[in-house]
Design a protein around this nucleic acid. Structure first.
Length: 803
RNA sequence: GCCUGAGUGGCGGAAUAGGUAGACGCACAGGACUUAAAAUCCUGCGAGAUUUAACCCUCGUGUCGGUUCAAGUCCGACCUCAGGCACCA
C-alpha cells in the first residue's frame, strides 16, 4: 500500500509551482490545441464520465508536450443556464454564488485528478469579462443582418406560467407540474442560421470530424433537392408547393396546405366553410407541440370548400385540404398530394375518401403507396402521364422539370430542415441581449463601448407570471435611454441561450485575458485551430453546429482567420452504473470520483477509466476491475526492487520494449487507451518474469505509463535520481527492434490450423513450405491425399490445400 | 419509420492489410505461503466428445446465405439492443 495521497499532492503542487503545463502564445514550438468540452458546473460535482474524457485528453496532452509541441489544454466553465437558476431559486441564493461554489468544487476535484490544464487561462461564460464579448459578437451579428426579431410559438405552461424548453416540455406536458403545455406566440430574437445551411454542409470538407459526426451534422441540416411549382387557383390567385418527386405530378388528386401557414389566412375570405376551417386551425395550434406520435395517429384535416386548384401540368381541377401533417414553416407550407406514391398522402386519401391515380408502374398501391425509395433506380416507367408516359422515372424527372421551368412556373430549389436559431430565453441567468427598444427608433443596438451589459445584482430572479424574463421586473435594468435619439427607452429583457457562450469559448482560450478584443487575430493565427476536440455524442449535432455557424459568421466579418476553427472532433462513450444503466441518483448507481480518489488514488482511477473499454463506446462501472488496476500499479512499484544500475535495456527485453513504445505511442494518439494500458500490463508481466531489470528498462516503463498515471510514475522516476518526466522527451523506438527474430507461423490444412512452426522471421516461401511439410502432424493430415496447392504468406501463414 | 453505432467466454473487452479467435484485466476454482485472514505467488478457466493422462478431434464471434485456399473481418438478406431525428413533402 503506497501513500498515494501524499505522492499525488506532492506532484500536483510541483506542477502548479513550476507552471509545467503553461501554454505560451507565440512560442517557437509547434502549437497543438487539445480541447475537452468545458463542463456545466452542476451542484452534484464532477461525474466519473468527465474523468474518462479529461484523462484521455490529458494523456494525449502530456504525450504531445513531451514530443516537443506547445500544447494548449485549457479548462473553463459553461455556467449560464436553467439548472443553475433553478438551483438558486430552490436554495434562495443568487445563481452567481451557486456557480462560484460549484466551480470551486469542480476545480478542486480536477486538481486532485492531476489533469494538466493550463489554469492560467481559466474563465467562466458568466464572467462579465467574457460575456461582454458574447454580447459584442451578438451586436456584430445584428449589424450584419444576421440577428432579427420574429414572432414564434413557444412552449407555455399555463399552470406554472412559464416558458418551457423543448426538453422541459417533453411529451407535451410540463415537467414540473404535469399540466398540458400549450403554444404561445412570442416575439423572439433569431439568428439567421438557415442562410448558412449550404456553407455548413460544405465546411465539413475542411474538417477531420469522425464520419458519424459529419453525418450527424448533415442530417441535422437536412438538405433536400426538388422543385418549387406554382399552382393557380380557380377564379384567380395562386400558391406554390415544394416537391422532390416532380415525376409524380400527373398523379395529383388534391393539395394539402398547412393549418399554421400564411396561405390559409389569405384564402380565408373565399372559404365557404369558415367555421369548420377555423375550428381545425384552432385545434392544431393546441396540439402542435404535443407528442405527435400520441395525438397524430391518423391524418386529420378538413376540405377548404369553395376553392379549387389547377394541376399546372394538365389543367385538372382538384380540391384543397387542410392537414396538420403539412408544416407551415417548411418548404412553402403546401404540398401536392399524390396518394399513389406518397405514404402520407395515401393515408390522408384513405381517411378522407379521396381519389387516387397511379402514374408509376411496377408497384402495388392497394395497401400502401408505391414510394420513391422503392421505384427509384429500378427502371420503373411512367404511366397516365401524357407525353411522359413510357419514360423512366429518372428521365421524366428531368423532362418534366425542364418543361415546367420553360413555362416559367417551376424552379429548382433546395430546402433545409434546419431552421433559424431561436436565440431568446425568458430567463434571468443568461447573457442579457444588448438591444434597446425605442418608441421612435425601434430596435437599437447598444453602443459597443457600453458593454458589458451586466446582469443586475438583485434578489428576485424568479420567472414572472406573464412569461417575461425575470429581468422585466427590474425597472432599474429595463429603463434606459435610446442610444440613437436619447429618448426614454426599454431594454430587451430576454437573455441568450446556454449555447451562446459555448459557441466560441475555444477562441477565447487562445487569448483569454484580452481586454480589447474577444481574442487577437495574432493569437488565433498562432494557435491556428482546435486540433482535437472531445465531447459527448449528445453534443455532436447541435452544439457543434452552433459553434461552426458562429465561427463562420465571424469569419465572414473578418474576425477569425479560418472558416472552420475545429479540426478533429471525437466523442466518448458514457460511463454507466454497475447495472449497465445511466448513472442517476434515483437509481442509486452513482459513483463519486472523490470517493475513488480517496480510497484508491487518482492514478488508479485514471488507469481504470482508460482501461475500462473502447473509448467511444459506453462502459459500465466495475469496482473489481478498478481494484485490478490498483494491483497493476502496485506491481509497477514492486518492480523497483529488481532494478539494477545499468543504463541500457536488457538484451532479452529489447524487442518487447521497442514494441511497447511503438504501440503505446500509436494508441494514445488513436483513442485506443484500453490497449495502451494492456500493452503496459504485458510489459510488466515480462519484467516480472525476470530476476532483475535494468534502470533503463524501468525508466521506459515509467515514461510510457506517465501520461495515464502521472503521479506515481514521477515519484518512482525521482527515486531513481532522474529529473521529472514531464520535462523530458517521449521515448523513441527502433522499428528494426520491434519484431522478434523467430516467429510462430500457423500451418493450415484446408484452412484449419493443424500445427505451428517456429522459424526465423522473413524466411522465404520455400523454407516455410519445407518446414511445414516436415511436421509430423501435418504429414498425418496429408498422407495419401493429393496436394492441390500450397498458399504461403511470409511471416503469416502456410495453407496446404488437399483433395 | 429514418439515420448512426453495437452484438465475440461467467463479465469488461483484444484481434493495424481477410491469415493461429478470445490478448489484457476481472470473476471463479485449485494450490503455495500464513496459527489464521489479508496481501502476494503458482496453476486452470469458450462449449462438447474421447482418454489413465497427454496429444488429438468436433463445434464456436446475433441469424441465414454467399465470395475465398482462408471470414469476427468482405458481400446480400434478416433479427436484437443502444443513441439521435422524427409527418421535412
Amino acid at each position: 500500500m503506497y501513500n498515494f495521497k501524499k505522492i499525488e499532492k506532492k506532484w500536483q503542487d510541483y506542477w502548479d509551482n513550476n507552471e509545467s503545463f503553461k501554454a505560451i502564445t507565440g512560442s517557437e514550438k509547434k502549437p497543438y490545441y487539445i480541447l475537452v468540452e468545458f463542463p456545466y458546473p452542476s451542484g452534484s460535482g464532477l461525474h466519473v464520465g468527465h474523468v474518462r474524457s479529461y484523462t484521455a485528453q490529458d494523456a494525449l496532452a502530456r504525450m504531445k508536450r513531451r514530443e516537443g509541441y506547445n500544447v494548449l489544454y485549457p479548462m473553463g466553465w459553461d455556467a449560464f443556464g436553467a439548472p443553475a437558476e433553478q438551483y438558486a431559486i430552490k436554495n434562495h441564493i443568487h445563481p452567481k454564488d451557486a456557480v462560484k461554489e460549484n466551480i470551486k468544487t469542480f476545480k478542486g476535484q480536477m486538481k486532485k485528478l492531476g489533469f494538466s490544464f493550463d489554469w492560467s487561462r481559466e474563465f467562466s461564460t458568466t464572467d462579465p469579462e467574457y460575456y461582454k464579448w458574447t454580447q459584442w459578437q451578438f451586436l456584430q451579428f445584428y449589424k450584419h443582418g444576421m440577428a432579427y426579431k420574429a414572432t414564434v410559438p413557444v412552449n407555455w405552461c399555463p399552470n406554472c406560467k412559464t416558458v418551457l424548453s423543448n426538453e422541459d416540455a417533453a411529451g407535451g406536458v410540463c415537467e414540473r407540474c404535469g399540466t398540458s403545455v400549450i403554444q404561445k406566440e412570442k416575439s423572439q430574437w433569431m439568428l439567421k442560421m438557415s442562410a448558412y445551411a449550404e456553407d455548413l454542409l460544405k465546411g465539413l470538407d475542411d474538417t477531420n470530424f469522425k464520419e458519424r459526426v459529419k453525418l450527424g451534422q448533415i442530417n441535422w441540416i437536412g438538405k433536400s433537392t426538388g422543385v418549387e411549382l406554382d399552382v393557380n387557383i380557380v377564379g384567380g390567385g395562386k400558391f406554390s408547393i415544394f416537391t422532390t418527386c416532380i415525376e409524380t405530378v400527373y398523379g395529383i388528386t388534391f393539395f394539402v396546405i398547412a393549418p399554421d401557414g400564411k396561405l390559409i389566412k389569405e384564402l380565408m375570405p373565399r372559404v365557404e366553410n369558415k367555421d369548420e376551417v377555423n375550428a381545425y386551425i384552432e385545434e392544431t395550434s393546441k396540439k402542435s407541440s404535443m407528442d405527435r406520435t400520441e395525438l397524430n395517429k391518423g391524418k386529420t384535416g378538413v376540405e377548404v370548400k369553395g376553392i379549387k386548384a389547377i394541376n399546372p401540368i394538365n389543367g385538372k381541377e382538384v380540391p384543397i385540404f387542410l392537414g396538420d401533417f403539412v408544416l407551415g414553416d417548411y418548404g412553402t407550407g403546401a404540398v401536392m398530394a399524390v396518394p399513389s406514391h406518397d405514404q402520407r398522402d395515401f393515408e390522408y386519401a384513405k381517411e378522407h375518401n379521396l381519389e387516387m391515380l397511379e402514374v408509376i408502374s411496377g408497384g402495388d398501391t392497394t395497401a400502401k403507396a408505391f414510394e420513391k425509395n422503392e421505384y427509384l433506380g429500378k427502371g420503373c416507367k411512367l404511366i397516365n402521364s401524357e407525353e411522359f408516359t413510357g419514360m423512366t422515372v429518372e428521365e421524366a424527372k428531368e423532362a418534366i422539370t425542364n418543361k415546367l421551368e420553360k413555362e416559367g412556373i417551376a424552379r429548382r430549389v433546395n430546402n433545409y430542415k434546419m431552421r433559424d436559431w431561436i436565440f431568446s430565453r425568458q430567463r434571468f441567468w443568461g447573457e442579457p441581449i444588448p438591444m434597446i427598444y425605442c418608441e421612435k427608433c425601434g430596435w437599437v443596438p447598444m453602443e459597443e463601448k457600453d458593454l458589458p451589459l451586466l446582469l443586475p445584482d438583485v434578489a428576485e430572479y424568479e420567472p414572472t407570471d406573464t412569461g417575461e424574463s425575470p429581468l422585466a421586473k427590474i425597472e432599474s435594468f429595463v429603463n434606459t435611454t435610446c442610444p440613437k435619439c436619447g429618448c426614454p427607452a426599454k431594454r430587451e429583457t430576454d437573455t441568450m441561450p446556454n449555447w451562446a457562450g459555448s459557441s466560441w469559448y475555444f477562441l477565447r482560450f487562445m487569448d483569454p485575458h484580452n481586454e480589447k478584443e474577444f481574442a487577437s487575430m495574432d493569437a488565433m493565427k498562432y494557435w491556428n485551430r482546435v486540433d482535437w476536440y472531445n465531447g459527448g455524442m449528445e453534443h455532436t449535432a447541435r452544439h457543434l453546429l452552433y459553434a461552426r455557424f458562429w465561427v463562420q459568421m465571424l469569419y465572414n466579418f473578418d474576425l477569425v482567420p479560418k472558416k472552420e476553427m475545429i479540426w478533429t472532433r471525437v466523442s466518448h462513450g458514457m460511463v454507466l452504473g454497475d447495472n449497465n444503466e445511466k448513472m442517476s441518483k434515483s437509481k442509486g448507481n452513482v459513483i463519486n470520483p472523490d470517493d475513488i480518489v480517496n480510497d484508491y488514488g487518482a492514478d488508479t482511477l485514471r488507469v481504470y477509466e482508460m482501461f475500462m473499454g473502447d473509448y467511444e463506446q459506453d462502459a459500465p462501472w466495475n469496482t473489481d476491475s478498478l481494484k485490478g488496476c490498483k494491483r497493476f500499479i502496485d506491481r509497477v512499484i514492486r518492480l523497483k526492487e529488481k532494478v539494477t544500475d545499468s543504463e541500457e535495456y536488457s538484451k532479452d527485453l529489447e524487442v518487447i520494449i521497442n514494441k511497447s513504445i511503438k504501440k503505446v505511442s500509436y494508441d494514445l494518439t488513436h483513442m485506443a487507451y484500453n490497449t495502451a494500458v494492456s500493452t503496459l500490463m504485458i510489459l510488466v508481466n515480462a519484467y516480472d518474469e525476470k530476476e532483475t531489470i535494468t534502470k533503463a528498462d524501468y525508466r521506459v516503463l515509467l515514461d510510457l505509463l506517465n501520461p495515464i498515471a502521472p503521479h506515481i510514475t514521477e515519484e518512482l522516476n525521482e527515486s531513481l535520481g532522474y529529473s521529472p518526466i514531464c520535462d523530458r522527451k517521449w521515448p523513441t523506438y527502433d522499428e528494426e527492434k520491434t519484431i522478434d527474430n523467430e516467429i510462430d507461423i500457423a500451418v493450415q490444412v484446408n484452412g484449419k490450423v493443424r500445427d505451428t512452426i517456429r522459424i526465423k522471421k522473413d524466411s522465404s516461401k520455400e523454407e516455410l513450405e519445407e518446414l511445414a511439410l516436415s511436421s509430423d502432424i501435418i504429414q498425418k493430415w496429408i498422407t495419401g491425399k493429393e496436394i492441390v496447392k500450397i498458399i504461403t504468406v511470409p511471416n503469416r501463414i502456410v495453407n496446404i490445400v488437399i483433395r
